[in-house]
């Protein structure tokens, strides 16, 4: 009872409702949920995933993801739905889409160019 009275005192300061206590997941579903939580950005926080956040928004999204998992949707389908609803920003890892080709291939191009430049420098010096 003491716990409860203290909690009431600080109600005004803390907002983090948790409502999915009663939803039970299998072990496999649970790890999938965790994986998706870590991949989904909390839209109202600063660079936090919903996994790390306790905001209302994050809790709603967690609930949504759990419902979708229980409904039998795959991770891919859930991610697509999230992107459709909230935009690409919501996923922590950028999609491998046309506009992101340079982001994904850039590192390899630079690594290769760097290697060529380095070898050319060495060869030029050895002339």
């Amino acid at each position: 009872m003491k716990t409860r009275s203290l909690i009431i005192i600080i109600f005004l300061f803390i907002f983090s409702p948790v409502a999915f206590a009663e939803l039970k997941l299998t072990k496999e579903q649970d790890s999938r949920a965790t994986e998706l939580f870590k991949e989904t950005r909390c839209l109202v926080c600063q660079s936090q995933t919903i996994y790390d956040s306790n905001s209302e928004m994050a809790t709603d999204l967690k609930l949504y993801i759990i419902e979708q998992i229980i409904a039998g949707k795959s991770n891919y389908e859930i991610e697509n739905q999230l992107v459709k609803n909230y935009g690409e920003w919501i996923l922590m890892t950028p999609a491998f889409s046309q506009s992101n080709y340079f982001l994904w291939f850039g590192p390899f191009i630079i690594l290769l160019l760097g290697a060529i430049m380095m070898l050319r420098y060495i060869l030029k010096n050895n002339e």
Binding site: E39, G87, E88, W89, P94, S99, N100
Partner: peptide, 15 residues
């Protein structure tokens, strides 16, 4: 991407 395509993306730890 935001500037030229008016699109927001996140680049998280996985990248």
């Amino acid at each position: 991407v935001d500037l030229f395509l008016q699109k927001s993306i996140s680049v998280g730890p996985n990248y």
